[in-house]
Simulated scan of single mutants.
Amino acid sequence: MVARGAVAQTGARGAAAELYDQIGQFLTAQRLSPDPVNYVFAHNVLSQPGSPLAKAVASLTDGGIRLTVKDIEELGVETTAGSAAETMMEAKAEAARMVARTQMQLEGFVDLASDLQVDTADFGRDLAASAEAIRTTLDTEEVVRLTAALAERVQAAEARLEATTREAAHLRAELEEARDNARRDPLTDLPNRRAFEETFAERMALGQGLWLAVCDIDHFKSVNDRFGHAVGDRVLKAIGTAVAEQCDGQFVARYGGEEFIVLFSNLNADQVYEIMNRAREHVADKRYKLRETDAPLGAVTLSAGITEATCGDTARMVFQRADRLLYLAKSDGRNCVRIG
């Protein structure tokens, strides 16, 4: 006769094995690599079938649609790995250090301004006393002494004022640098998602006609899988530079992962499509090589979806429409542009 505890233990092992098999099937169906991040994501979905996460995944995959890396990121699971993540962490640490330095400089500036205010008040009192002394005395030597003392105080005040001005200019530059770093992607040196959302809101408020293109590097995951994240990072930088050059005069940003966005202002549909398609062709025509061995990396291509911003749209709403068109471009075989 089998003990009750043994039966329970056997049942637990059976449930665990079943969940393990389900996770494997899920990853295979979604064409996700069996790395720890994706495994944890699948485990969270399948182990809690009634959770909001599981329901969101069911909605996204309805009709046989596969999840993308971006879908997983938006559902709250971080998938960035390798040197790109390290670069981002370093950038955040540097931003924190800059904020601390700026705060210290600001406190020093406040102290300096306070000292200058005290010196100015003292100078005013001394000036009044000296003027009275000059008025009531005819002693030439005393007048010379008082005049020299006043000149010395004036020079000292001017020196303090000059130092304060330099400090203020330095502080202004530090603050501007910190603000710029907060709006810039550290890997590609392009504006980031935050900068895009701010720019979109500003231009919408000005009533500019806007079109948004969402671009995605085709099969980028295979680049990381075959050559590693260091090579993947270099590809991201090269593609970001190429898109920015081909879309010169427009706002180009890295949205996240292998996605870039281009915000076009005051252009019509034909002009926007022509620019974006020219950028796609330029990327497809380039032949990338491995820096270490000079071996060919293989073709790297872009797909893009373009949509127009309408009155009342938020950046998120426009992005979602362009992203759906990007998905259609991927479905059409990639390396193409869809506009709508």
Rank of each mutant, 00 (worst) to 15 (best):
M89Q: 08
D294C: 03
N268D: 15
T10F: 08
L297P: 02
S222G: 09
E198R: 04
T307H: 00
G228H: 10
V262N: 03
P36T: 09
A269F: 00
G240M: 10
D62I: 01
F220S: 05
G11F: 04
D139F: 00
R31H: 14
E158Q: 14
V69R: 08
G305R: 00
G240V: 02
D111E: 04
T80Y: 06
R135T: 09
L328E: 14
R203S: 10
Q9L: 01
M204I: 13
L116C: 09
L206R: 11
G305H: 00
K237V: 14
E78N: 11
Q246Y: 02
A3R: 08
Q105S: 07
E107W: 03
V231M: 11
D126V: 07
F26G: 12
A133E: 05
V214Y: 01
F319W: 11
G333M: 01
A128I: 01
R66T: 15
S47V: 13
R324H: 06
R4M: 05
P36E: 07
S83P: 12
R183G: 04
V57A: 09
N266A: 02
G11L: 02
A299R: 14
V2S: 04
V272H: 00
A315G: 12
Y20N: 10
H43N: 14
M317N: 15
P186D: 13
R184M: 15
S83T: 10
D294P: 01
A304L: 01
R31I: 03
L27I: 12
V235T: 13
G256M: 04
L267G: 06
F260M: 02
L210C: 11
Q246R: 03
D294Q: 02
T140R: 15
R226A: 13
D323I: 12
T87M: 08
R321L: 06
E162R: 14
G232L: 06
L112T: 00
L297W: 06
N335W: 07
L210Y: 03
A121R: 00
A253I: 13
F41R: 10
R338P: 03
A149D: 14
D21Y: 02
R287W: 01
R254T: 12
E202T: 03
L325N: 10
R203Q: 12
D332W: 05
V154D: 09
S33C: 02
L267I: 08
A15N: 13
F109W: 09
A8L: 09
V40S: 13
T301A: 10
A129W: 12
V110F: 03
A12W: 06
S51T: 14
V154A: 12
H170R: 15
T10P: 00
N192Y: 03
E86C: 06
A295W: 02
E258F: 11
M276K: 00
D122L: 07
V235M: 12
A95H: 04
E86Y: 03
T28Y: 10
F227A: 07
A8F: 07
L190M: 13
C311T: 05
A168I: 01
A279E: 04
F227D: 08
E107T: 04
H170G: 07
T68Q: 04
S47W: 06
M104G: 13
V2R: 09
A178S: 09
E90W: 05
A16D: 14
